[in-house]
Design a protein around this nucleic acid. Structure first.
Lengths: 334, 334
DNA sequence: GGAAGTTGTGCAAACGTTTGCACACATTTT
DNA sequence: AAAATGTGTGCAAACGTTTGCACAACTTCC
């Protein structure tokens, strides 16, 4: 229905190829015809069809992005970075969330390939092995965010981040340090937690490790479990800032003050965390930058610059008001 | 490069049309050939090309979504709703932010049309008149979120929301009520503020209306301006939850307690707002649902069900701990 | 004044599907 | 036994671009 190159050609009395070249500023088209045709195109309300163009040139100028969970504010930062970088390179972004479901992840990526995206970015993949399989049907480059094993990846070193965070708590005098973990995506952090404790000769007490869903709710339900322990912790390290907020809320209901009675740490450093009350001690995952770097890497792959190395970015500790030296009363009550 | 229908046809010894029909489960293809061809397709790693298909059938099964600001958590809720609904209808989503720049908005939408999306959703458009222009080049349906004038829109009635919120403050005894506004997108709320005051015979004091950027920063800078007034407010109504959080932080630095010394209200009801400290009195914009409804509306338009009416959804007040009756000390000091 | 180069345009194939129409053969109906 | 209907498949055009190749006309050079 829409006006096509042929329509313009007919009216201008030239061939479609000439119109195509005129619109693309081909050097061998005379200035006269160029001007005329461009004028005509404007008048006729011509809007080129990327679809047809993609078919002809065999590239779609589109990148597929599959994220773990659109609900989690952390991924928002990532998407921001990705969106900006993609737009800067004049690509478009197809966005999908797979909500931690491996089957859905596969569906999404398969659909991306049907649509012939030029490349794919996925966060926290559950099916890395499929991308690695040399004869899957996915012939386009894939960059995985936060993978430790995939060759084309950019990852935050969360284990180290968590290790340093726990060390901070230990330095403050804490010995009974709990960890609220998220079983699916929290293994790295849990590992950092363990390593830090062991490095300081503190044995890991399984009772102090409780699972959660990674949201505020998770924190709300996890905290009471810990506080009802015969021997409760003096500090709680959380899977992310959201759980930390949940934990703090639950503690307040228990009439526990943060940080006077108990210290709490987050992970992510959401924009709001610095302005929470108390402001959150946490680990900054530079989500924006990770997103950008992932796009840069992907575009290099798309352009067949194959000398790409996995990137690991170090997070940064943000010491704020939700942690304090262990209180004497609590510490000695143990 | 990838295997095409023709490749399969050659190997199967049939025509490409037969292959196409076999893969699409056309009734007039014998079960035998169907099975054979589908088997073959799997073995050869065939992935159909949506691009070619789109060209042939003249629809892309894609919806373009242009949002005001990807940075604002409010829009995240919207995008979640949109993403879910789009996926449920087996469309794909092209996502772009135009960061409050009308020129960029136009670019984005133009690009959507080049890519022949089947429809477009835009939030808080700055160029509604262009979509209304009967001979623009945009031949596909557009749904605008939060427009009061566009015929195909779903909007939250923010004026009413704000009006009720201010009434709540007045009922609590407040008379000097400030409003932190966002000049670009906050006109409706400002209007609600004005109407509420006037309805209660309180004159609008321009000194109590201060602009901000709509983020935490905006709140941080706006609050001191208000508190340094000769005659400061006893309540501050904010453009959104983020500014409210900024305002509360600034107040704390001024040794003002919320809500004992001063009440603060937000707008949006972010997930976190119920768990802020103090929990925020605010107006819930049901972002998820608005997103969903917009998609439903758009899809009806795409399917030429033209009986669509603009939808207005009423927000809901959430009374929480950041507001309290006006304190006697402050009130009488006036 | 012929060879060589330059400039501007057109032809036609290609990209990978879908689909109306035609047709051959088999089956059922009258 | 002829006619009508049903079943399975192929032909070829269409969707809207891009682009290698060819070619004519015009310049420039020796």
């Amino acid at each position: 229905m829409a006006v096509s190159i042929k329509d313009i050609a007919k009216i201008a009395g030239v061939s479609p190829s000439t119109v195509s070249r005129a619109l693309n500023n081909h050097p061998r088209i005379s200035e006269g015809t160029k001007a005329h045709i461009q004028q005509l195109a404007k008048e006729m309300g011509y809007v080129p069809s990327s679809i047809a163009r993609s078919l002809a040139v065999q590239r779609s100028a589109t990148i597929g992005v599959a994220v773990t969970d659109l609900t989690d504010p952390y991924y928002i930062g990532l998407i921001q970075g990705i969106e900006k970088a993609i737009a800067a390179h004049t690509y478009q972004m197809l966005l999908n969330s797979f909500y931690r479901d491996p089957d859905r992840e596969l569906e999404v990526v398969y659909d991306f390939h049907q649509r012939r995206v030029d490349g794919v970015i996925v966060t926290g993949s559950y099916i890395e092995n499929i991308y690695l399989d040399p004869d899957n049907n996915f012939f386009k480059p894939v960059v995985i965010i936060n993978s430790l094993t995939y060759p084309h990846s950019v990852a935050v070193d969360r284990a180290t981040g968590m290790r340093k965070l726990i060390k901070h708590l230990i330095d403050l005098g804490h010995r009974r340090i709990a960890h609220v973990t998220q079983p699916r995506d929290g293994m790295e952090r849990l590992e950092g937690y363990r390593v830090a404790l062991e490095a300081h000769g503190i044995s890991v007490d399984p009772a102090l490790i409780v699972p959660c869903d990674g949201g505020i709710m998770g924190g709300l339900t996890a905290a009471p479990v810990l506080m009802n322990l015969a021997h409760p912790p003096t500090a709680i390290s959380c899977f992310n800032d959201l759980t930390a907020i949940g934990v703090i809320n639950a503690l307040h209901r228990h009439k526990c003050r943060v940080p006077q009675d108990i210290s709490v740490t987050g992970f992510d450093d959401l924009e709001m965390s610095a302005y929470y009350n108390p402001s959150l001690t946490t680990v900054r995952q530079p989500a924006n930058r990770v997103g950008e770097r992932a796009v840069e890497m992907l575009i290099r792959l798309i352009n067949h610059k194959n000398n790409v190395e996995p990137e690991i970015v170090q997070p940064r500790l943000m010491f704020r008001d939700s942690t304090a030296p262990v209180s004497l009363s609590t510490a000695t009550s143990s």
